[in-house]
C-alpha cells in the first residue's frame, strides 16, 4: 500500500530524512517511532504530498507522490500533529466542508458526517464551535476529518499527544477499530501505544531507520539469556542467595530492592538454559516461601533507547 524507496528530504540547512526505505502492506498498522525531531513528521508530510521529496521515491496505493499527487491525496486521510481545525466553525459545518473538499458528492455528505461523528463519539458536540471544545474532542474531530472519505490509507501524526490517559485509550481503541479495512501509519513516542496497537514498528532516529520489525520480534531481539525476578519470604537473604547460586544453569544472582521487605533477586541464566522450575524447586525444598517468580523481558523502552543510542555513538565517532 505504501512504498518508500531511498527517500531523502533536505531542508535549507539540515537533512531531515536520510535515504530511508520501507514498505507497508495492506491492512497493516505501522507504528512510526522516534524521538522528537527524528524525521517522523517529515516522512509523513512527504507521503501526504505536503512536501516533495528531495531524492528518492514514495508511492501510496500505487500512485507516486510527485507524479500523481491528486490520486495520492484522494487515497489518504491525514491527521497532522496539530489537528487542522478552523476554530470559528461548528463541528458539523467543518466536517461537511472537509467532505466536500475530499470530493464526497452532495447527497452523501450528511450521511458521512453523521457516520464519522458516531464513530469518533463526537455526536454530542456536533453543533458546537470548534474553538470551544476540549483538547480531547478537538483531537477526535481531527480524526473524524481524516476518515471522512473512508480512505484506504490513514496517516496519523501523534494522534494521542496531549490527551489524558482515558482519551488516549479511546483514540487507541478507535484506531484499532479502523484497522480492518485501512492501512494505518501512526507516529508516536509513546512505546506502550505501539505495543498495544501496531503490528509492525519502524524505529527512526536522526533521519535514518534503525529498525523495522514486528513488535514480538523486537522483544526477542534484546537478550539471548533468560532473566528471572524472584522474591522469597521467610529466610535469610544471604542464605537464599547462596542457594540460588547453586541451582544448575544459573549464571549470576543480583540482589534487588523489594517494597515488601522480602528478599528479592534477579537471576540470570546461562545461554539456552531454562532455570525457572529448578529455582522454584530449590526454594520450596529449603522451606522458604516463594512469593514471586517471573521472567523479565526486555521492554520496548530499553530496545528503543539501545537502538537510538547506538546510532548516536556511531555518529559521534564519525564526527570525531
Amino acid at each position: 500500500m505504501i512504498k518508500v524507496e531511498g527517500l531523502t528530504k533536505r531542508y535549507a540547512r539540515n537533512v531531515a530524512v536520510k535515504n530511508i526505505s520501507f514498505e507497508v502492506g495492506k491492512g497493516e498498522i505501522v507504528g512510526f517511532l522516534g524521538k522528537n525531531g527524528a524525521g517522523k513528521t517529515t516522512t509523513m508530510r512527504v507521503l501526504t504530498c505536503f512536501l516533495p521529496p528531495t531524492e528518492g521515491k514514495a508511492s501510496v496505493a500505487g500512485f507516486d507522490v510527485l507524479e500523481q499527487p491528486m490520486d495520492v491525496k484522494r487515497n489518504i486521510g491525514y491527521l497532522p500533529e496539530t489537528p487542522p481545525l478552523y476554530p470559528e466553525m461548528e463541528v458539523w459545518d467543518y466536517l461537511s466542508f472537509v467532505a466536500k473538499l475530499k470530493g464526497i458528492s452532495g447527497g452523501d455528505i450528511v450521511k458521512r458526517v453523521d457516520e464519522v461523528c458516531e464513530r469518533t463519539a463526537i455526536g454530542d458536540v456536533k453543533y458546537k464551535i470548534i474553538g470551544k471544545l476540549s483538547k480531547g474532542y478537538r483531537q477526535r474531530v481531527g480524526l473524524a476529518q481524516a476518515i471522512i472519505h473512508n480512505p484506504p490509507v490513514l496517516i496519523l501524526d501523534e494522534p494521542t499527544s496531549g490527551l489524558d490517559p482515558e482519551q488516549q485509550l479511546h483514540v487507541r481503541q478507535l484506531v484499532a477499530s479502523l484497522s480492518g479495512d485501512h492501512t494505518i501509519i501512526l507516529s508516536t513516542h509513546i512505546l506502550s501505544e505501539v505495543e498495544q496497537s501496531c503490528s509492525k514498528v519502524i524505529i527512526i532516529n536522526e533521519g535514518s531507520i534503525v529498525a523495522v520489525d514486528s513488535v514480538a520480534a523486537l522483544h526477542k531481539r534484546g537478550r539471548s539469556t533468560e532473566v528471572v525476578a524472584i522474591e522469597v519470604a521467610g529466610g535469610d537473604s544471604f542464605q537464599i542467595k547462596q542457594a540460588l547460586e547453586q541451582v544448575p544453569g544459573v549464571a549470576r544472582v543480583v540482589s534487588r530492592d523489594s517494597k515488601s521487605g522480602n528478599a528479592a533477586f534477579e537471576v540470570e541464566g546461562l545461554e539456552n538454559s531454562f532455570i525457572r522450575p529448578d529455582l522454584a524447586r530449590s526454594i520450596v525444598h529449603a522451606g522458604w516461601h516463594l512469593t514471586e517468580l517471573r521472567t523479565v523481558g526486555e521492554s520496548l523502552e530499553d530496545i528503543f533507547l539501545e537502538l537510538t543510542r547506538a546510532e548516536k555513538k556511531e555518529v559521534e565517532v564519525v564526527t570525531k
Binding site: 505536503f50 491525496k73 489518504i76 497532522p80 487542522p84 481545525l85 475530499k102
Partner: peptide, 14 residues
Amino acid sequence: RSGTIELLLTSPVR
C-alpha cells in the same frame, strides 16, 4: 499560522 493549510494542501484540490 494555525496549520490548517495542511488540510487544504493534502486534500485532492488543485
